[in-house]
Simulated scan of single mutants.
Amino acid sequence: MNTVLHLSSSSGPGGAERIVCALAASLDRSRYRSIVGLFRPGWLKDQCESRGLTTYVLPHDGFMQWKWMRDCYRLIKRERVDVIQAHEFDAIVHGALVAKIARVPLVATIHGKHYFWEKRRRRWAYRWVSRSAQMVAVSEDLKRFVVARTGIAEDRIQVIYNGVDEAPAADQDQASQYKRDLGLPDDELVVGVVGNLYPVKGHTHLLDAIPLVLKDCPRTTFLLIGRGELEVPLKTKAKTLGIEERVRFLGLRHDVPKLLAVMDVFAMPSLSEGLSIALLEAMAAAKPVVVTRVGGNPELVVEGETGYLVPAGEAPPLAKAILALLGDPSRAALFGSRAKQLVEERFTLRLMADRYGALYQQAISRKPARAVVAA
């Protein structure tokens, strides 16, 4: 049995952090033993431990932390680690250095475009890590982005999509009960979005679209699920627009499946995405979706079949697409059914874990000659 050390420089909550935990917990346990190494305690540590994963915190507070690398090296030797799976920039670069010292292969996952590519040293660092690596992108869009920004050869990059658990659909009685729990009448229409309240998630554009939706569908409630730095400004904007009675800011929730069950439409106004876990979970829950045409979204959503793709940063097209689904329940149900089927065929957690497992086996088989990088 091979031991995989999953390294994360972020402790969540977020899509990348959820993949760290899900991947570590979902690998074939007859072939792989997962342990987790985090730069700091927090949400991710709690999630990993709740799933029975041995989790270590290796404190880290700056670039090129030699003490961290020493502690990580000792952990690798003590736990007899066979391959390192690193997530995000700091974990990737430090993980690459300690992997070379410890002579173990590295798999590194970049979850999105973020800001890493704006600094020359970050682009150089990824090129350095990838010289002896096979890179993997979580979407074709991210693959193209990495190639363009780093100059890495296209044939050095493959795609492994994120995956989610298959979701049992709530029946009508359950959905009605969940609505009552939220204080909503059965005939209320519900539009929801799941995502941290950061500028890149585009919530401000959804707020701009809401008055346009309410003109035609005045009995609609909008659920914003997530926490973040924009909570106060977004609440202020909702009040300024006169829609505060129709917008619920629910914060970080641990009952997202229940909240998805009450939604008639899942809307995601992001300005940038890697491969959205929130979107995949909404589709797995058989929800029709309206999302922006950014990142990996067009690779998940089939326009006019499982949902609608709209331009980022524009409220009128977003409102128009939401109204098209709210006004046609039969079409919305058909889109949701097709979305669920698509996830079950191509974007399950099992498929993702199996593909990473094959990648680990490939890396271990040629140890210590090469590292493997996933983006």
Score class of each variant (00 low, 15 high):
residue 344 E to F: 03
residue 294 V to A: 12
residue 255 D to M: 05
residue 336 G to Q: 10
residue 268 M to K: 08
residue 285 A to D: 02
residue 157 I to C: 11
residue 293 R to L: 11
residue 69 M to G: 03
residue 130 S to L: 13
residue 109 T to D: 06
residue 221 T to G: 00
residue 357 G to N: 09
residue 90 D to M: 13
residue 10 S to A: 14
residue 104 V to Q: 01
residue 195 G to P: 03
residue 70 R to L: 12
residue 108 A to G: 14
residue 318 L to P: 00
residue 115 Y to K: 04
residue 190 V to N: 04
residue 238 A to G: 03
residue 98 V to F: 07
residue 282 A to L: 12
residue 77 K to T: 03
residue 306 T to V: 12
residue 123 R to K: 13
residue 240 T to N: 09
residue 351 L to A: 11
residue 213 V to G: 01
residue 360 Y to V: 01
residue 369 A to C: 10
residue 275 L to M: 14
residue 319 A to Q: 06
residue 198 Y to A: 08
residue 337 S to C: 05
residue 345 E to A: 14
residue 329 P to D: 06
residue 218 P to D: 07
residue 110 I to R: 14
residue 21 C to H: 08
residue 247 V to A: 10
residue 97 L to C: 10
residue 75 L to C: 06
residue 343 V to P: 00
residue 117 W to P: 01
residue 277 I to R: 06
residue 169 A to H: 09
residue 294 V to S: 09
residue 230 L to F: 05
residue 122 R to M: 12
residue 243 I to N: 11
residue 364 I to S: 03
residue 28 D to M: 01
residue 293 R to T: 12
residue 276 S to E: 00
residue 19 I to K: 11
residue 225 I to C: 09
residue 211 P to L: 12
residue 78 R to C: 07
residue 203 H to T: 06
residue 142 L to E: 04
residue 282 A to E: 11
residue 347 F to T: 09
residue 230 L to Q: 15
residue 359 L to K: 00
residue 124 W to G: 02
residue 183 G to R: 04
residue 245 E to Y: 05
residue 248 R to S: 11
residue 297 N to Q: 11
residue 303 E to W: 04
residue 217 C to F: 13
residue 72 C to W: 01
residue 18 R to Y: 08
residue 372 V to P: 01
residue 132 S to Y: 10
residue 287 K to M: 03
residue 56 Y to H: 13
